[in-house]
Simulated assay, not measured.
Amino acid sequence: MGMRIKVLQKDGGKLQVNEEFSEMLAFNGIDTFEKLWNIPSEPVKKVVKQRGTERVLLKSPDGAALEAYIKRYTPEPLKEKIKNILSFRPNRYPGALNEWNAVVEFHRNNLPTMQPIACASRGGDSCILTLGIRDYRRASELFAEFAGKDRSRRRSLIGKIAGLAAGMHSAGMAHQDFYLVHMFVREGEDDKPYLIDLQRVVFKEDFSERWRVKDLAQLLFSSEKFVSRTDILYFWKIYAGGAVGKMSDGKALMAKIMRKTASIRKHAG
């Protein structure tokens, strides 16, 4: 059974707060959209013009500092929006509310991800504040280190990632950027993988085999230089055993995944 996060509505619905962090946010004077949007922060990364992530330090009543991350979204330019619609890619960079809903839904389904603190939205501007994941390694780094050694540990991590993928798809969600770099692994939790960057998650209403294929092809593309055919078959055994919902025959689905992987490889090259 997953953990249900109780969400409190503030500032006329423009600010949503995880009840667990309500007292801390109040202590830091964050009770409106404006206060969260303008919270002091330092840049970490900016992948696209419409989205940037910055580090935030929150003070707790006991004097300790809590490291968090705020991701701010601004509206997609009309020209880019029209281009994406014509390319059948509407809502390519949705606002923070989509990521907030995804994080909350991940917790409800017991899928490891970031801890949500607050989300704010007004007009076309929105932002999400999450707790930083500490003491992690990127899955891509670990698999690179496993090359030629740590076979049992590599196989164990493959099984955990397969379980995460199966759980996500069984819950009717697809990540859309399901690459190893978006998985943080906490070695102190027996190599437990956490999935990050959920801003483009597709939900039940829109979930279909197309998204299942895309996710698994992205994962295969990002891991193929680290894993063997036997590893892939092991992943598939765990994934197929845990996934529920409408799914093609195994061989047919695998063929679609291989074709999509080849397409990603071609565009990446």
Rank of each mutant, 00 (worst) to 15 (best):
E34G: 03
G148V: 14
R186Y: 02
A162C: 06
N98H: 07
S248E: 13
Q218W: 02
S22W: 09
E42C: 08
C127S: 06
V47A: 12
E76N: 05
W100D: 03
L36I: 07
E224K: 15
R155C: 00
M254W: 14
L15T: 08
K79L: 14
V7I: 15
H107G: 00
R153T: 14
Y194P: 00
G52S: 13
N98F: 03
P116A: 04
D11Q: 11
Q16E: 15
V185W: 08
R154S: 15
G241A: 08
L131G: 05
A120H: 01
A96V: 10
H169N: 06
S223T: 02
V47I: 13
M173C: 10
M24Y: 08
Q16G: 01
E141G: 07
A252N: 07
M24N: 09
S60H: 11
K46H: 11
S126Q: 04
M1S: 14
H182M: 07
L131K: 15
I161G: 08
L15Q: 09
G159P: 01
K49N: 13
N109W: 14
A65D: 12
K192R: 14
R89M: 09
T53L: 13
Y73W: 08
I133T: 11
M183E: 04
I39P: 02
W37P: 03
L78C: 05
R200Y: 12
V48H: 10
M1Y: 10
I85M: 01
F106N: 08
N101L: 13
M168Y: 04
K59C: 08
Y239F: 07
R212M: 15
E54I: 00
N28F: 04
H169T: 12
I196K: 06
D135V: 05
R212Q: 12
L198M: 08
D190H: 08
Q176A: 12
L58A: 07
A64M: 10
V201R: 00
S152Q: 15
R153F: 02
E54D: 11
V185I: 15
I5P: 00
R72H: 09
E189N: 10
D31R: 12
I158S: 09
E145N: 08
V227S: 05
Q199K: 11
L142F: 08
A68P: 05
V185R: 00
W100F: 14
L219N: 02
N98L: 13
W211F: 15
K225C: 09
L142A: 01
F178V: 04
E34M: 06
K49Y: 07
P43Y: 00
L164K: 04
F88V: 07
E20V: 06
A26E: 14
F33E: 06
L164C: 03
F235G: 03
I133Y: 11
H169L: 12
R92L: 15
R155S: 03
E20G: 02
I264Q: 05
I128Q: 00
S126Y: 06
D62V: 04
G123N: 01
F184D: 01
A26R: 15
P193S: 06
Q176P: 00
A65I: 09
G167C: 05
K266V: 10
R265N: 10
G159M: 03
L164V: 15
N91R: 06
L58P: 02
K266C: 10
G159I: 05
S170M: 01
D231I: 00
L233R: 14
M168T: 07
L111Q: 13
A147L: 12
N38R: 14
L198K: 03
R229H: 08
D177R: 06
T74M: 04
